[in-house]
């Protein structure tokens, strides 16, 4: 038996919004410690990893590990039926072929239950190695979203170069070129830790997709190391995260 209750549907809506552009379907792996999900996009260029520890939930019960294969489009449709300030309870029996979502209005005067058919997804799990990133940058999530949007105007390819001087985003195309550089701020809005400078090239379209998670977090963490995927991490309060990994572009 699995049961998890969140005080606000809004955060769940935001989590699904952060996933659904990159994934159509996904399996939530529920255990007694919380919920995990990991999936590659269709073209296997990026990987998204979601972790919600049980402390994130108002109520959490999971007697036995259970995998819930969900169609994210269908889940979005169900979430549209709920108000952001409704409480939501997700329930599934052991070996169930459906999941139940119950919404309760803030004043408890309205309840609504929905059933969603579960999918049997054959999802491949990848081992994500522990990586020491040479450059770790924290910046406001809205700033990162703005940079990705502005870069997209110029080119499909974005170079991210990080050194002690700052982090620089560059894009150049037929129209011209764009360079945006952020330095560390004294107020701590932007922090930049650099062991070795790193410069890598990425597909801007994926970076833009990752910024769908912007409403979830004030700050985004970016990790860069030579010849490994970029890490873009959005914390979910103190109880979890969405991490996106993006394979760099490499010389032909």
């Amino acid at each position: 038996m699995f049961e998890a209750r969140l005080a606000s549907t809004l955060t769940l809506k935001r989590i699904v919004d952060a996933l659904r552009e990159i994934l159509n379907q996904s399996t939530l792996d529920c255990s007694d410690t919380g919920i995990q999900m990991q999936a590659m996009d269709n073209s296997h260029v990026s990987l998204v990893s979601l972790c919600l520890r049980k402390e994130y939930f108002e109520k959490y019960k999971c007697n036995r590990n259970i995998s819930l294969g969900l169609d994210l489009k269908s889940l979005t449709k169900v979430l549209k039926c709920a108000n952001g300030d409704d409480a939501v309870t997700i329930k599934a029996a052991d070996k169930a072929d459906k999941v139940e979502l119950s919404f309760e209005s803030a004043g408890k005067e309205r309840t609504a239950d929905y059933e969603l058919r579960l999918l049997n997804l054959d999802q491949e799990h990848l081992a994500i190695p522990e990586t020491e990133y040479n450059c770790v940058v924290h910046m406001p999530a809205t700033e990162f979203a703005r940079i990705c949007r502005d870069m997209a105007t110029f080119s499909e390819s974005v170079v991210i170069a990080c050194s002690k001087e700052g982090i620089k985003f560059s894009a150049s195309g037929e129209m011209g070129a764009a360079n945006i550089k952020l330095s560390e701020t004294t107020k701590g809005e932007v922090s930049i830790q650099v062991d070795e400078p790193v410069a890598l090239s990425f597909a801007g379209r994926y970076l833009s997709t990752f910024t769908r998670a912007t409403p979830l977090a004030e700050k985004v963490k970016i990790g860069l190391a030579p010849d490994v995927p970029l890490l873009v991490e959005y914390p979910i309060e103190d109880y979890g995260y969405i991490r996106y990994y993006l394979a760099p572009k490499v010389d032909d």
């Binding site: 260029v45 394979a247 010389d251």
Partner: peptide, 14 residues
């Protein structure tokens, strides 16, 4: 010219 790498080249199957 740069080409897009695959995430599978970096993360192996469990």
């Amino acid at each position: 010219k740069k080409i897009q790498g695959s995430i599978r080249n970096y993360f192996s199957a469990k």
